[in-house]
Write a protein that binds this DNA or RNA. Structure first.
Length: 828
DNA sequence: AGCACGCCGACT
DNA sequence: GTCGGCGTGCTC
């Protein structure tokens, strides 16, 4: 009796929940729970709520209370969607931290964290899942109605469906249909990642028998000599390498594709299509059941020991030193201890290939999470992490939001990569830094790995905040490319330079082309000429928005602003004085391509920059052309540097290193080092040493020396000394102001005003406003500022509180609205 | 994020 | 005289 009374009492309790709405709102809102749902209320479950006049959203329960709000009447929640929480307490803590650290709203974090299928709202678009055969007999009336409607009109919103059914609560129905794979929650369609497929050839094992083989040859030589050649070439190749691709076989044998096809039809050869990596090294490093080299074994022990002292550890390993193998060993250990592992990779490095390799070790317990996966797939991964089915997750930055329960290790590969930083919508977080916090929360170990670590991580390792392990030895006999520095000034004097190409570079290009090898030329500038200047009156066309000189693009015949996208017709006479003597100064990839075509009319030359890859499959097409040897020389911007595998490339030419070395940015040297090292790394392949030609006016530049010597420590030391004597502190914190105004002039003044206000609180510790990239750009979002903490022990929370306050005042003075955001690295 | 309210410019 | 531009404020 007593128990029953108690239960009834609980049922009668009036419960309220604070919910997180997936919106840009500063606070959480409170809703009331209908009595009959009291038993189901739990933090982390999704609820359906009405917010505002007519809109319906999916929200997350953040807090449960019996306290009724004093100042307003709470609305009832409409529904509880989940039987079990889909977000755990740790995640909510993580979201709160992220919102605080990056100065944004928790709703924005929720938006970034949850796949859109988990946050149905009235405006969400629903469509049928085309890959799913619907068995109508299994549908109930309402489902039937929805499917019918969707067949007439392929896309309906949630509120359309509510109207159709004549009822308000449609979310649970849609949720179920989504889970049954009947419907798709549509979202912006990202280009899905297309893995590179290759056909591999193997010999029918029958012919491993010498007699059979001889017999085969005697037949083939008479009737199909080309096919005999191909088989011979196969046998020769198979002595050198384990896997032979169709392309390699065609190249080595000189036989045609039809000859090979004929052999496949006769079942002499077997063909098998496989996914291969676009990344270098992956193939060689990850043979199954690999053995660690002595150097790797030492490093592994050091990492394990390091983790007993420190929670975060930086692994500095030169390119091709086999870091991935170490990760695998560490992951194995963690998984054996029953812990979960998160393996973070920069966006571009996520290939199904690496997954396949890892699957070999971890079977079906490995999941992949990636923005190019569709929502159904993303939700699936989410659920499998939640239920603990996935023990290892390989993913891009957004995978820090997955519902881990007992994370033991986080690996952040290519730790320095800027793609870990989300720039555009809030939360403007850096997944590497977030991973460190995440690790701390779960008492998990964090391993940062890179061949060219970021300054701040190196700094932290140096100061003992992080542990530090080095791997200086290359794995498996891959040779470092030969780097030659050529003085442009000297060749100009000797008149041995043609256009922008020194004799040294031209010789190497000729050698490569003669050997049917490929060349990449790197020039860190798009367009044809970055500046036009009138020889008579010195007038230079500038962007009306940004105050920077406009770049001439020959392909469009227009002048482009590379910061805001503004375009205008290219003038034929000087707009100021009417003179026809317009000089095109400097050069970009277009000009490199153009002039090279004049010098080498027979070579197949292509260009890879933002302009040629903007179209849907532009990037992919160029890669494929390069792969299949339809391109001899590729001229490109930074894009060519990003870890992609250009197997046939043996020569790299850096047309002018000076644009890198003279970047007006205080992280210029660090970036120059990384870029030069990365570009250089593209040269050569297994068994063939690459050649890198660096053309420059400043052959003695210390960064060039550091790249040649592979001396990251020297780079770090000189940078730190220089920064100390510089007007900036060695590290500063960047506050990114998310102010949007159409008039850049206004925007600029707003940023200045804010910096001035902040200076009232922080004096000279505020630097700025500063703009992304070049000094005078008035860009869409403005980066301001900050500040030195070394002295006076101002705590970060206090700083943040003050910034909030200033922004708040700023908002109320109606100069602007806009939220504050704070990205970048906090090494303190 | 939506949506309403409200105040100034070019139109049937 | 209105229609409609977007600036501002509010949503439990």
């Amino acid at each position: 009796m007593l128990e029953l009374a108690d239960a009834q009492h609980t049922d009668r309790k009036t419960l309220f929940v604070e919910v997180i709405l997936p919106l840009t709102i500063a606070i959480n809102y409170t809703y009331r729970i209908p009595y009959e749902m009291n038993g189901q209320v739990e933090v982390g479950k999704r609820v359906v709520v009405q917010f505002g006049k007519s809109k319906i959203y999916t929200a997350i329960i953040a807090h449960i209370t019996e306290q009724a709000p004093a100042k307003y009447e709470a609305k009832y929640i409409m529904d509880i969607l989940d039987a079990e929480p889909i977000v755990n307490a740790a995640q909510l803590q993580f979201w709160t931290w992220l919102a605080d650290y990056y100065l944004c709203n928790i709703g924005e974090v929720m938006n970034a964290a949850l796949p859109s299928a988990l946050k149905l709202a009235s405006e969400t678009k629903i469509e049928l899942n085309k890959e799913f055969e619907i068995d109508r007999s299994t549908l109930n009336d309402r489902e039937f109605l929805i499917v019918d409607a969707l067949e007439l009109q392929p896309e309906l919103t949630v509120s359309d469906i509510a109207k159709l059914l004549g009822q308000k609560t449609v979310m649970p129905i849609l949720k179920l249909m989504f889970e049954k794979n009947i419907i798709h929650i549509s979202e912006e369609v990202n280009d899905r990642y297309k893995p590179r497929r290759r056909t591999f050839i193997t010999l029918n094992p029958v012919y491993h028998n010498q007699d059979q083989l001889k017999e085969l040859f005697s037949i083939l030589e008479k009737r199909a000599p080309k096919q005999a050649d191909a088989v011979l070439a196969y046998i020769q190749l198979s002595r050198k390498q384990k896997t032979i691709s169709k392309n390699e076989l065609i190249e080595a044998s000189g036989a045609s594709a039809t000859a090979i096809k004929g052999l496949i039809e006769k079942e002499v050869l077997f063909a098998e299509e496989k996914t291969v990596s676009r990344l270098i090294d992956a193939d060689d490093e990850l043979e199954s059941n690999f053995e660690l080299s002595p150097a790797q074994k030492v490093a592994l022990t050091e990492i394990q020991d390091g983790f007993t002292q420190k929670d975060v550890l930086l692994l500095h390993g030169v390119t091709s030193s086999g870091k991935t193998q170490l990760y695998i060993r560490l992951i194995e250990q963690m998984v054996n201890n029953g812990k979960q592992v998160l393996y973070l990779l920069p966006e571009i490095a996520l290939t199904t290939h690496i997954v396949e390799r890892l699957r070999r070790y971890f079977g079906n317990s490995i999941g992949v999470y990636h923005s190019r996966f569709n929502d159904n797939e993303r939700v699936e991964v989410w659920q499998k992490v939640l239920t603990g089915q996935y023990r290892v997750v390989l993913g891009a930055r957004s995978s820090v939001f997955l519902p881990f329960s007992d994370l033991g290790l986080i690996v952040v590969d290519e730790e320095h990569e800027t793609s870990y930083k989300q720039f555009d919508p809030a939360p403007r977080y850096n997944a590497r830094d977030a991973a460190i916090y995440l690790g701390n929360m779960y008492r998990a170990k964090v391993l940062l790995g890179s061949a060219t670590p970021s300054m701040e991580s190196f700094f932290n390792a140096h100061n003992g905040k992080y542990g530090f392990v080095q791997l200086t030895e290359r794995f498996g006999g891959v040779q470092m490319p030969q780097i030659e520095v050529v003085s442009i000034a000297e060749e100009t004097k000797k008149k041995t330079i043609q256009s922008h190409f020194t004799s040294v570079l031209m010789n190497d290009i000729h050698t490569a082309l003669a050997a049917k090898e490929q060349v990449i030329l790197f020039q860190n500038r798009r367009g044809y000429a970055p500046v036009i200047i009138c020889k008579v009156c010195a007038y230079t066309p500038k962007c009306i928005n940004c105050d920077v000189s406009l770049t001439y693009h020959k392909s469009s015949g227009k002048l482009h602003c590379h910061y805001c996208g503004y375009r205008e017709e290219s003038p034929s006479v000087c707009p100021a004085c009417g003179s026809t003597q317009l000089e095109y100064k400097g050069f970009g990839t277009e000009k490199v391509e153009d002039e090279l075509k004049l010098l080498l009319p027979d070579a197949r030359i292509a260009r890879m920059d933002l302009d040629t890859t903007r179209s849907k499959n532009g990037f992919q097409n160029i890669l494929n052309d390069l792969d299949e040897k339809r391109i001899d020389i590729l001229a490109g911007t930074q894009m060519v540097a990003k870890g992609l595998d250009f197997a046939g490339v043996t020569v790299i030419g850096i047309i002018s290193a000076d644009s890198l070395l003279k970047y007006p940015d205080f992280r210029a040297n660090e970036r120059a080092y990384q870029l030069l090292a990365q570009v250089s790394g593209r040269a050569g392949r297994r068994g063939k040493q690459g050649k890198v030609v660096i053309q420059t006016y400043d052959p003695n530049h210390r960064v060039i020396k550091q790249v040649i010597d592979n001396d990251y420590v020297d780079l770090y030391n000189t940078e730190m000394t220089e920064r100390k004597s510089f007007k900036y502190p060695p590290f500063y914190r960047l506050i990114q102001l998310d102010i949007k105004h159409k008039d850049p002039e206004v925007l600029y003044h707003q940023a200045e005003y804010l910096a001035k206000e902040l200076r009232k609180h922080f004096d000279d510790r505020v630097i700025g406003p500063e703009y992304p990239l070049v000094g005078r750009i008035r860009n869409y979002f403005i980066k301001s500022i900050m500040m030195k903490f070394e002295k006076e022990g101002i705590s970060m929370p206090k700083v943040k509180a003050t910034i909030r306050e200033v922004i708040l005042q700023y908002n109320t003075t109606k100069l602007s609205k806009g939220s504050i955001v704070q990205p970048d690295v906090d090494p303190y």
